[in-house]
Simulated scan of single mutants.
Amino acid sequence: MTDLIAARSQMAMSLGFHIIFAAIGIALPLMMAIAEWRWLRTGKTIYLILAKRWAKGSAILFAVGAMSGTVLSFELGLLWPAFMGWAGEIIGLLFSLEGFAFFAEAIFLGIYLYGWQRVPPKAHWAAGILVAASGAASAVFVVMVNAWMNTPAGFRLVDGRPTEIDHLAVMLNPSALGEVVHMLLAAYAATGLLVCGIHAFLLLRDSRNQFHRAAFRIALAVGGVAAILQPLSGDLLAKTVAHYQPVKLAAFEAQFKTEPAAPLRIGGIPDTVRREVRGALEIPGGLSVLLYLDRHAVVTGLDAVPREDWPPVGIVHLAFQVMVAAGFA
Rank of each mutant, 00 (worst) to 15 (best):
M1A: 15
Q10S: 12
Q10C: 13
M11A: 15
S14Q: 12
L15F: 02
L15C: 09
G16P: 09
F17K: 09
I19G: 05
I20N: 05
F21D: 07
A23Y: 08
G25C: 00
G25N: 02
I26L: 14
I26K: 05
A27E: 08
L28I: 15
A33T: 08
T42G: 14
T42D: 11
G43A: 11
I49H: 13
I49E: 12
A51K: 07
K52D: 14
W54M: 02
W54H: 00
G57P: 01
A63I: 07
A63N: 02
S68H: 07
V71G: 04
V71Y: 08
S73W: 12
W80H: 12
W80C: 04
W80S: 08
P81L: 04
M84W: 04
G85N: 05
G85T: 08
W86N: 01
I90N: 07
I90R: 03
G92K: 02
F95C: 04
E98V: 01
A101Q: 10
F102W: 09
F102S: 01
F103N: 06
A106Y: 12
Y112G: 01
Y112F: 11
L113V: 10
R118N: 14
H124M: 11
W125K: 01
A126E: 06
A127W: 00
G128M: 01
I129Y: 03
A136P: 06
A139G: 07
A139E: 09
V142Q: 08
V145S: 05
N146W: 03
W148N: 02
M149F: 01
P152R: 03
G154H: 15
V158S: 04
V158N: 14
R161A: 13
T163N: 11
E164S: 12
E164M: 13
I165R: 00
D166E: 13
H167R: 13
H167W: 10
L168S: 10
A169K: 13
V170H: 10
M171K: 03
L172T: 15
H182F: 01
V195A: 14
C196Q: 05
G197D: 08
R213F: 13
F216A: 05
R217C: 12
A219W: 00
A221T: 10
G223R: 00
V225G: 03
A226P: 11
I228P: 08
L229V: 12
L232N: 08
S233E: 06
L237H: 12
A238Q: 11
A238I: 03
T240K: 09
V241Y: 02
K248F: 05
L249T: 00
A251M: 11
A251L: 13
E253M: 09
A254C: 13
A254S: 15
F256H: 02
K257W: 09
T258K: 01
E259D: 01
A262V: 00
I266N: 03
G268N: 06
P270L: 04
T272P: 10
V273Y: 10
R275I: 15
R278I: 14
P284M: 13
G286R: 03
Y292H: 14
Y292V: 03
L293G: 15
D294W: 15
D294Q: 15
R295C: 09
R295Y: 08
A297L: 10
V298A: 10
L302P: 01
A304Y: 11
V305M: 03
P306H: 14
P306S: 11
R307F: 15
E308R: 11
V313N: 14
I315N: 04
Q321Y: 07
V324T: 05
A325T: 13
A326K: 02
G327F: 11
